[in-house]
Write a protein that binds this DNA or RNA. Structure first.
Lengths: 329, 329
DNA sequence: ATTATTTTCGCAATCGTTTGCGGGTTTGAA
DNA sequence: TTCAAACCCGCAAACGATTGCGAAAATAAT
């Protein structure tokens, strides 16, 4: 007998619905005998509370929204993985929606979250998003929003980010340490604030040593990174090191490395910013500065939980970076 | 004024809740004038129907569950991606839960789905799952379940699968076609039915030519595949071709190929079963038989929609395979 | 002018659960 | 024996939206 309700139990036992409800919650008002009977019948009837009704009554769902540009992306995966793991402990589930990097879809998705009365939303902005006033509606609806990775500039929002500045600096330092003189640095889409931050920090670090020649290039995807690398490695004067801002770029570079049979690290050194999966699939393993989606997810959860119990002012939090030695530099 | 309800609108306009409800739905019973006023006020109050209340009333949510072992897996990603894309068109959202390959978590998750009254569930069984009677409860609750990828043997369930048999055969044929004589075939966990199916079909195809020597090996992850490959490629008599049952195995093999500087395809040929992403990150690109998570997702959705409008008997459906030429064989 | 019809809207129940309040019954104390 | 205090339990409202049914008001038909 599936879909048993309090009412059914009450009818069978010829008691009231409220008594059944309280008995199942071990309320002191109810006698041991009644509790016994109710619990047993609930068991045999396989009673399971209707979460929808509970949500309506309590005016809150045990669901968080997660909006990402695309789910087929290693970095977001680890983020979502961490979040799912973490919120499950508190009895929450996840409603995942993809924006497809489309601002219109993004707004539609917010509406879905509002209508479903989610308890909070984790958002990674789409590449194309410029105006973020749509998110003010979430505030009106009293649904906390924690931005991650691609976050708005506005200090009025809660944000958790990778320590892009630190990470880029660490990578730059490592390159200088190794006495590299002719560096190819490949970055992603310049529109993104993440690119800006990493680029700026990298450039700043490079200023330390003016004897170093750095070529800055930008690739929107792996294929473009591959093409750029092809150009540079066919020059008479090959780069003696390559910096990759992301996994996407690293993958493109490595395809070129394989094609041209470039010896790593003897002919050229490689360092990347990465979540950690891709660096380990190559030989030698790539030296990288970890920008962990997983840890970002954990941090985002912490912040979300704080928001749920009366948030104070908004903050911007960072996940620290970690240098991971491979054999590529 | 967020969180407006029908009641608030009704109070302001001094009309009944039912009239407001009907006006917003353009019900013929309501006069044009009233509709006008209601619509306008709803607009300015930014009224948005409470999905939770609607769900309770209608006894159905516009949410599907998706349960996978882990979200950090390319194949499942493409599956989820396809499903999300597809069901969004029909106004559905996704509730994603990971089983972590743990049967107990799997059962807990089913409970969550039941309590949340999802409209249906897509399930990929965990590696460890042996008993599937827990899924009968879903039938009692009248929640359709569509299994995908790792599915139960029982014909009593709806299943969509990759055409594993076809795919393995196509790969085997390709190897024979290329006159390979000393083949290393690496498969995954033998517990999994997917492994069994692929292995069986591969072996069957290989019987055609008894002059071919095939070594069968099994790897639970990339590292094991790497180790196996290391062993074989340090033999005097190197394999002249390698078959990889999955991306995981391909990645392990390729690390070995890079380390030992094995020339592909001149020294050894490679063919894999894959979703398509990983084969393209190597040079030369790997020849593979496509086992598309994306197309599997689309197929699963089709089946789910049929289930929703009175399913007939259960079926097992397959996604066809496609041979994709790379430069590795 | 009276009856019939249409237009327009409200009442109340429903989905399943929770909870404040009040009332009846039993037990104990005076 | 009587009054008070526990002890149990049910009534009813609430969450927000939907809908069958009935009724009042307005219009049309006779």
């Amino acid at each position: 007998m599936a879909n048993a309700t309090l009412k059914k139990i009450a009818q069978v036992l010829e008691i009231s619905v409220s008594t059944v409800s309280r008995a199942l919650k071990d309320h002191p008002d109810i006698s041991a005998g009644t509790k016994q009977k109710v619990m047993e019948l609930a068991e045999t009837l396989e009673y399971e509370p209707n979460a929808v009704a509970v949500n309506l009554r309590s005016k809150s769902t045990k669901v968080f929204g997660v909006m990402i540009p695309s789910i087929t992306n290693n970095f977001y995966d680890s983020f979502v993985n961490a979040v799912e793991e973490e919120v499950k402990k508190a009895g929450y589930s996840l409603m995942i929606l993809q924006s497809g990097d489309d601002p219109v879809t993004e707004i539609d998705n917010l509406k879905i979250y509002r209508q479903n009365r989610v308890s909070g939303v984790f958002v990674c902005l789409s590449k194309e998003t410029t105006k973020i006033d749509a998110f003010d509606k979430m505030k009106d609806a009293e649904i906390p929003v924690v931005f991650f990775d691609k976050v708005p500039d506005d200090n009025a929002y809660d944000r958790v980010c990778l320590a892009d500045k630190d990470a880029a600096e660490m990578a730059a330092e490592a390159l200088l340490q190794k006495q590299k003189k002719n560096i190819l640095a490949i970055f992603g889409n310049t529109q993104l604030s993440i690119t800006k931050r990493r680029l700026e920090a990298f450039k700043e670090s490079m200023k330390q040593n003016t004897a170093v020649n750095v070529s800055y290039e930008f690739a929107g995807n792996s294929e473009e990174a591959d093409n750029i690398a092809q150009r540079y490695f066919q020059l008479k004067q090959m780069p003696d090191a390559v910096f990759c801002m992301s996994d996407e770029i690293l993958v493109g570079l490595m395809k070129c490395v394989q094609q041209l049979h470039i010896k790593v690290p003897s002919q050229t050194g490689i360092i990347a910013l990465s979540d950690g999966y891709f660096p380990k699939i190559y030989y030698p393993e790539i030296t990288y500065v970890e920008t962990s989606g997983y840890r970002l997810g954990k941090l985002a959860c912490e912040r979300m939980m704080e928001c749920l119990k009366g948030k104070e002012e908004t903050t911007e939090l960072f996940v620290s970076s970690r240098f991971v030695e491979g054999g590529s530099l």
